[in-house]
Every structure is written in structure tokens, then in C-alpha cells.
Design a protein around this nucleic acid. Structure first.
Length: 268
DNA sequence: AGTACGTCCTGATCGC
DNA sequence: TGCGATCAGGACGTAC
């Protein structure tokens, strides 16, 4: 499940693979429902002949800035992954979309579960939902997080998952952040103390930067394989497994229908 | 406005 | 060992 670290590493992978500078020579959209806008014909025509100038990330969205001013937006959903490969190389069986490049390579969009999404727009603001501060940026502070949680009585984990509060947060890093900060996922957000908000802010930054760094160090030699399947969790995602801090049994529950794991001793 | 839940999807995993 | 049942969850629409 690509969350911020995986999406950011995908961005770095695309840059390393030389997608910026390449020009689209066509596109094969194999799962039309993934294309949100525009209609298929305009999507293909709009990409044709356009060169990728830059690749940005906003939350979990990848934005390929094209010459001429348009932006190709990709969201990896839960099982999405991207690869830039020679057309002659056999494609992964779960490739749903193929973007042909003018250098004989292809940008291949893998997406087993078909939850990924694509847009081609003049202004990303027209289609992107409101996104909160990026937790890796300077604007993500105890003050801004506290303000975002003010008056909210939903479980803190549910709010961490809202992209309008923490852009790029996902289920696994939410559990990780709450474990690192010793806060139980079910706690009403507004009841967190100032000190807890501060610890949570640090934990979110720490969980995400650790994941990014772990990938870059341990998998660097594997580039250009896609950055997926990172496993840098402190907390086991298995009920009854031993807590790495106290040795007690990890509890499993569901919050907003999302699998949630925490240590009942370490997280209060 | 805030909160909760169903829906979309299918590969991977579980359990008998 | 095999196979059907269940699980996984990001974002959105709907409902209360």
C-alpha cells in the first residue's frame, strides 16, 4: 500500500529512470475507470508529443508536469506501482496502463486491485482534494497539527488518515506513528495533551523519514526496481505478537474499518 | 459540520 | 495438497 514514503520513492525512481526529458508517443488505458478526466480520446491526444519536465508529489499524488503546461496526475491507490522499461522487456502481468515513450521505452502502470486513478489537467487544483501539510515539510508542526485536530472527537487514528490533515499518511504509518508516540489509536483527538501532540508530530516525521531512508539505503542497489513492499515497522501487524518495547501482546482492532494494531501497555 | 460506513477491486492468505 | 472463503484498504459517496 503506497503511502508517502513509497510514493516519494516512486517519484525518485521515475527521476532516476529518466522519465523527465522523455516524450509521450501514445497511451494505452487498459482500465478506463481509472481515468477520471478527461475522456479517453482527449487524454491520449493531450499526452501525445508532450515532454515530461518535472515530477512532483503532493501527498500521495504524483504530478508529472508536461511542456505546454498540462499535468498528468497519478494516484497509486493501494496496489499501484510504476516502472520505466524498454518496450522489449516483458511486462508485469498486472500492468493496467501503458504510456509509450519516444525513446523506445514505456511507462508501465501496475495496479492489481484497480484502485489507482489518473487525471490530465491544466490546473491540478481543479481536481485534487484539499491536502493538509506535508509531514516532511517545515509546516508540519505541533501547532498546525493541534489546530487541525481542534474540536475533533473522532479517534486520533481516523484523523491522521484524513489527507486534509496529514497529506500522505496511510494506515500502516498511522499505526507506526501512534506506537512511537505511545498514544492509543482510539483516543479522541481533541483530548490529546499538548505534550502528546508534540510527541505525535515527532513520531509522524520519524516514521516517514525512517522509511524513506531505510529504502534508500537497503534497496539502492536494486534500482530501478519499483519501491514497494517496504517493511520497516516497529509494531508487528499481528494480534498477540510480542511488543518490541515491553514484550506484551499486541492488540488488534478496527478503526474506520481499517486494521489497527497497538500495544495496550505502551499506548495509553 | 462531524462522524461513520458501504463501495469499488482482485491477489494473497487463511482455513478446512 | 487443494480449493473456496476471507482479508486487505485509499478515497469517495451517502447517510445520519
Amino acid at each position: 500500500m503506497p503511502e508517502l514514503p513509497e510514493v516519494e520513492n516512486t517519484r525518485r525512481y521515475l527521476i532516476k529512470a529518466g522519465l523527465p526529458g522523455s516524450t509521450f508517443a501514445g497511451a494505452d488505458v487498459g482500465w478506463p475507470k481509472a481515468l477520471k478526466t478527461p475522456a479517453l480520446e482527449d487524454f491520449v491526444l493531450g499526452l501525445l508529443g508532450r515532454r515530461v519536465e518535472r515530477i512532483d508529489r503532493q501527498g500521495k499524488y504524483l504530478l508529472a508536469r508536461l511542456d505546454g503546461g498540462a499535468t498528468l496526475i497519478l494516484h497509486l491507490g493501494m496496489t499501484g506501482g510504476l516502472r520505466v522499461q524498454p518496450a522489449s522487456q516483458p511486462a508485469h502481468p498486472l500492468v493496467r496502463h501503458t504510456f509509450f515513450l519516444n525513446d523506445g521505452r514505456e511507462l508501465r502502470f501496475i495496479d492489481g486491485r484497480k484502485f489507482a486513478k489518473m487525471w490530465l489537467v491544466d490546473d491540478p487544483k481543479d481536481v485534487l482534494p484539499p491536502l493538509g501539510n506535508d509531514p516532511l515539510g517545515d509546516d508540519f508542526t505541533p501547532a498546525t497539527l493541534s489546530a487541525a485536530l481542534k474540536g475533533r472527537n473522532a479517534p486520533v487514528k481516523a484523523l491522521l488518515l484524513e489527507q486534509s490533515i496529514v497529506a500522505g499518511m496511510g494506515n500502516l504509518y498511522a499505526d507506526e506513528s501512534l506506537f512511537l508516540s505511545g498514544i492509543r489509536p482510539s483516543r479522541p483527538a481533541a483530548k490529546l495533551s499538548k505534550r502528546e501532540i508534540s510527541k505525535l508530530t515527532d513520531a509522524v516525521k520519524s516514521a516517514l523519514t525512517t522509511a524513506l531512508a531505510a529504502y534508500n539505503i537497503s534497496r539502492e542497489e536494486q534500482w530501478p526496481d519499483p519501491p514497494m513492499g517496504m517493511q520497516t515497522w516497529s509494531i508487528p501487524r499481528k494480534e498477540g505478537a510480542p511488543c518490541p518495547r515491553c514484550g506484551g501482546a499486541i492488540s488488534g482492532t478496527r478503526i474506520r474499518a481499517r486494521g489497527t494494531f497497538f500495544c495496550p501497555k505502551c499506548q495509553r
